[in-house]
Structure formats: C-alpha cells, structure tokens
Amino acid sequence: MDLFLTLVSGVAWTVVYVEAIRVGLRDRTYAMPVAALALNFAWEATYAVGEFRSGVSAQGVVNVVWALADVAIIWTYLRFGRAELPGFVTRPLFAAWSALVFGSGFAVQWLFLAHFGTHDATRYAAFLQNLLMSGLFIALYADRRGPRGQSLVIAVAKWLGTLAPTLLFGVIEDSPFILGLGVLCSVFDLTYIGLLLRERRVAAAPVLGPAAERAL
C-alpha cells in the first residue's frame, strides 16, 4: 500500500507539472500561482541535493525531474508574468520582485530544515505549501475571472497527488497534523474542481437567440 500511494502521488504530480507547462504555453501565461511555484521549486531542489548526498535514490531522481519541470513553469512566469501585473511594474521591478519571491521560497525551506530536521521538514513544509497552493489556485481563478491558464487536469491531478500522501502519512503512519492539513487541502481542491466544472458547463451551454428566449 505504501508503494502504491507513493506511485499515485508521483504520477499525479508529474501530470500537474506537464499540464502546467502545456497550458502556460497555450494561454501565454503561467499555470501555477507564483508563491506556490517558488516554494515547490525550493523544496524539490533542496531535498534533491539532500537525497543525492547519500547516493542515488528513486526519490532523489523524482525530485530532480520535478525541479526541472518547475524550471520550465518558472520560464513561463518570467516570460508572461509581467503582463498579469499593473502597468507601473517595470522590468527591473518585476525582476526584483521575482528574485524576492523565489529567494524567500528557499529561505522558508531552509528554516523548516533547520528547525524540524529532514524527516519532519520534508513533510510539514510539503503539506503547508500544498495547502497554500490549493487556496491560491482559487484566488488565481478569481483574479483572472475565469479558467485562463488553468486546467481541470491540473486540478484533479493536484488533488489526487495530495490525497495519496495524506492517506500514507496522515492515516497509515498516524500523523494527525498531516491528516488535518491534507483534509483541508482536499476541501480547497474539490472547491476548485467544482469551479472549473461549473465553468465548463457554462461554456458548453447553448446560446439562445432572442426568438428562443421569447419562447421561453
């Protein structure tokens, strides 16, 4: 069961990254909230290095693959992200802001590592930033007033990719803290999925002409 849940999480999150790259390029925007992207990239880079210090491991390889995928998503943010901001945000200001956000992502990961140690820091940081990401996806939908730069595939894969380790660490390994965070993630993720499904139904609904409306 442990291996199955780990594989589900790994595959689901890989789908999230690949789809985020595809959607970002398609819509000429970035498909992951930037604060969550910064924390994700810092987490993967930090713990990939940690894994390889003791030799090559499956998790280390996965972390490297995810970090490289994040680099592609970061490129979409750097390429298209300034257009999402007010006009007074100049290129230098955008560059400074981006450096602050991504630098802060690494600082947060290293603070978790220093305070909790590797075993707990990897899990606590992952679930807390996951909860942040869940909320920020909804905020992204609201800010863009629709699903531009978003995808139901990302939403569902993100939910499953978080649900699997919630069951593994929260239920099987009996961690109430992680279980609680995982449940909150699911609440936000399912809300986001509901918003995207509603948007899809609205887009698919037939547009009635004036005559049909009068007939109703």
Rank of each mutant, 00 (worst) to 15 (best):
D27N: 14
L132V: 06
Y141W: 13
F94V: 09
Q109Y: 11
F94H: 13
A96V: 14
K158R: 13
A205R: 11
L152E: 07
V18R: 12
W159Q: 14
A125G: 09
F88N: 12
G81P: 00
F106A: 15
G182R: 08
R82F: 02
R148N: 12
Y192H: 02
V202E: 04
T122Q: 15
T90G: 13
L85G: 10
E84K: 12
V61L: 08
P92M: 07
V207Y: 03
I138E: 09
V65G: 06
R22P: 03
E199Y: 13
G180L: 05
G135N: 01
W75F: 14
R148I: 15
W159N: 15
W97M: 15
S98Y: 00
Y124M: 05
R144F: 00
D70K: 06
G149C: 01
H115V: 12
G81C: 02
L136F: 09
V64S: 05
Q129F: 14
I154V: 14
F112G: 02
G161F: 03
T90K: 12
R148W: 14
G117W: 07
I193C: 05
F127V: 02
Q150W: 07
F188T: 01
A96H: 11
P86A: 11
R148A: 10
G55C: 08
T166N: 12
Q59V: 12
V18E: 03
T191R: 13
L216D: 08
F102R: 13
F169M: 10
T118G: 11
R53S: 01
W110S: 10
G81S: 02
G135C: 03
Y77N: 00
I138H: 14
Y124K: 07
P86N: 09
G170V: 00
D120Y: 10
V8G: 02
R198L: 01
V187R: 13
V153R: 14
T162P: 02
L208A: 11
A31R: 02
G161R: 12
Q59M: 15
R201G: 10
A12N: 11
L167H: 00
A155P: 03
Y47N: 08
F106K: 10
A155Q: 02
T14A: 11
Y47K: 09
M1H: 11
P86C: 11
M32R: 09
L197W: 10
P210W: 05
G60P: 04
F177I: 10
T166S: 14
L85P: 08
V15D: 04
L85W: 10
D70Q: 06
F137M: 06
R22W: 08
R144S: 02
K158E: 05
F102N: 07
G105R: 07
A58Q: 13
L37R: 08
L37A: 06
L111V: 15
F80W: 09
T14M: 07
V101I: 14
